[in-house]
Write a protein that binds this DNA or RNA. Structure first.
Lengths: 161, 161
DNA sequence: GCTTTTTTGTAGCCTCGACTACATTTTAGG
DNA sequence: CCTAAAATGTAGTCGAGGCTACAAAAAAGC
């Protein structure tokens, strides 16, 4: 018997257990929907900072997708008001895009740092964080920061096996 | 062709930085591809254990999707050799499905436990784990287990000052 | 036993994110 | 300057995973 719904959940007072569980899955699905856009925004910001420009071909290569796929996604970014692009002139971020990029990057670092702090090898932490980060809530992020701030393991990474 | 088969192993020694980054995103994408199937398998196993049967309608309700969507996904499970179903007789898991369910469940618990251990409120940990779990590698899982076993922080959660 | 409701399944449509193939534009070479 | 290559953009396809609407079978009510 699992009866994982036996605990008193703060927000979901009288809701049926099914609805609670359904909401959980729905949250994960919606997080996934914005994951791709977040990746693009973060990468574009990265390219703009390091290279001075973000060209679709570079974006595609870094993401490991075809240029057509990248261009389509850039179109979505523009529709969502996160980026702009001039014909044959590269992609740029709107203020909203820049803001999102900053938040995504901070979250990424925090997730990696936490993984390393609990003993995940740095290389692996980077890999896993790419998928994980999109699903970490602000509440959890705050907890991560608190955890890292209180008992930061001298930043040399936890002992590798 | 992307020659994605050039590096199945995590030795990114002489590879260009772009390829490394691309591989990271690709891993996240492939993890996402199996996420839905994992959720279904876990839920079906849960229903079989607690209710004795897993009916498409129940699956759909618990996942928060329409029954048509659930039935389609069940079809995918069958194609992948993870489940079987007899007309109007519910869904069952194959040995492979059962094995996957067990692994998914263990991983889920480990992720939740780790989140709680670093100070994430239990309710939030459950929510976030739903999305996170699909992206946690075996290496990271092992680190989680080690962390939880070695330095369990008195289980009172991080003190909220 | 017949009707109604629930459950199950099918069909068709949508969006997203991937792809290939082709068209166009800019840039680079000769 | 004109051509070849690279970069950019467009069109069309595909599968996954959602949806609604409808059809059929099983279960429940009367």
């Amino acid at each position: 018997m699992v009866t994982k719904n036996a605990m008193p959940t703060p927000l979901c007072g009288e809701l049926p257990a099914e609805a609670v569980q359904a909401a959980r899955f729905e949250k994960a699905r919606s997080a996934q929907a914005s994951a791709v856009l977040e990746d693009y925004v973060e990468l574009i910001d990265d390219l703009l900072t390091s290279q001075g420009e973000a060209r679709p071909t570079d974006i595609a290569r870094r993401l490991g997708v075809s240029h057509a796929t990248a261009i389509k996604s850039i179109g979505r970014l523009k529709r969502e008001g996160l980026a702009t692009s001039k014909l044959y002139r590269g992609v740029f971020l709107t203020p909203r895009g820049l803001d999102l990029a900053a938040r995504v990057r901070a979250r990424h670092r925090l997730v990696v740092d936490l993984l390393v702090a609990v003993g995940v090898p740095p290389h692996c932490a980077e890999l896993d964080a790419e998928g994980i980060e999109h699903h970490v809530s602000d509440t959890a992020l705050a907890a991560f920061a608190r955890f890292l701030g209180h008992e930061r393991p001298t930043d040399d990474g936890a002992e590798v096996e």
